[in-house]
């Protein structure tokens, strides 16, 4: 008798867990679809909004798929992601920012601003600062919904490409009544990109530099579909791991066999002597990049952070790859 009861309880428990899991996974699926649709929406809306600068209320469908209506020009802004902080400051709204995270480091002023957490956000803090607008990223995940449940207005960004970075800047511009400034920034960024492309497009295929992107000492790299890969390709480089997706870990022998011309290390800001360590790897001494001293640290703040400085990062990469073409 006792045993049957236990079995029934167990069955019920399993059923609950199973249903829960299914519900979760279907949620995610829908969200994913919404994302891709809305990023297109963003662009269209942003394009048509340039005439009515500073007119509120505005309604924006953000990258979380939510329609965000902003009633009036936000006076207190919290940014919970460094790329958004750079966008907000770039739009000249620095004095309206009342909260940032510990991960923020640019511009210099952010260090004076109150922190609302690091990777984990402090909701009490956020609510107590009474922001008119919180700018977040899709990577903030569940925190976004939690803030919304507290009645905080959240605008979610989620750029994965250069093109989407422009959209994000325009979206923030629209939400804060600074559309003109946003368009200026985007125009100047596009000019940077064009400059690089003009130089790079004349380089014949056989003179293009091959690049190994090292994003972790354990030989993790950035493959196709990543922002870094896009940057390297735009800068005229050939990522030797472009045939892999995402962030794979690669066999050491593969890197040696592919023999890259240039090595970029992205973790030099938190690993001491990162570049030297790569140069000194005994097994890597036959690689062209090592022999020619072409191992460089990339500051991921300007090469991966999807903010206004990203095109400077692009220029920097291109100049490292083809110094003779740029310093004429």
């Amino acid at each position: 008798m006792k045993n049957t009861l236990r079995h029934i309880l167990l069955a019920v428990l399993i059923a609950f867990v199973a249903v829960g899991l299914m519900a979760c996974s279907s949620d995610e699926g829908e969200q994913g679809e919404n994302n891709s649709e809305t990023s297109e929406n963003n662009q269209q809306e942003a394009d048509s909004s340039s005439e009515n600068e500073g007119s509120f209320p505005v309604t924006i469908t953000d990258d979380s798929g939510e329609e965000v209506t902003i009633e009036e020009e936000p006076e207190k802004i919290i940014s919970v992601i460094p790329s958004a902080t750079e966008i907000v400051f770039g739009l000249g709204l620095g004095d309206k920012v009342v909260g940032v995270t510990d991960n923020d480091n640019y511009p210099e002023e952010v260090k004076e601003i109150e922190s609302v957490g690091a990777f984990e956000l402090n909701f009490e803090k956020i609510v107590s600062l009474e922001p008119d607008l919180v700018v977040a990223d899709v990577n903030n995940g569940e925190a976004i919904q939690q803030m919304r449940d507290q009645g905080v207005k959240v605008l979610v960004l989620g750029a994965q490409t250069l093109e989407e970075t422009y959209e994000d800047i325009l979206t923030v511009g629209k939400a804060t009544g600074t559309t003109t400034k946003a368009e200026e920034i985007v125009a100047s960024m596009k000019k940077d990109v064009e400059e690089v492309e003009n130089v790079v497009e004349d380089i014949p295929e056989e003179e293009r530099k091959t690049v190994w992107l090292e994003i972790g000492e354990e030989l993790f790299t950035a493959g196709s579909g990543t922002f870094l890969n896009e940057m390297v390709e735009k800068a005229g480089g050939i990522n030797i791991m472009a045939d892999q997706d995402g962030w794979p870990q690669i066999s050491e022998e593969e890197v040696i066999e592919k023999n890259p011309d240039v090595i970029f290390v992205t973790y030099a800001n938190y690993v001491e002597n990162a570049v030297d360590k790569v140069k000194k790897r005994e097994t890597w001494q036959d690689i062209t990049a090592i022999q020619e001293g072409e191992v460089h640290a990339l500051n991921s703040d300007i090469t991966e952070r999807t903010g206004p400085r990203i095109t400077q990062g692009l220029k920097m990469i291109a100049e490292i790859l083809y110094p003779e073409k740029f310093n004429q």
């Binding site: 690091a118 990777f119 972790g216 354990e218 993790f220 066999s251 050491e252 973790y267 938190y270 690993v271």
Partner: peptide, 16 residues
């Protein structure tokens, strides 16, 4: 923070 990945990776074990 950023070093988390390195530590996690070490804990998983590897001969690389």
């Amino acid at each position: 923070e950023e070093k988390m990945q390195t530590i996690m990776y070490w804990m998983m074990g590897s001969l690389t």
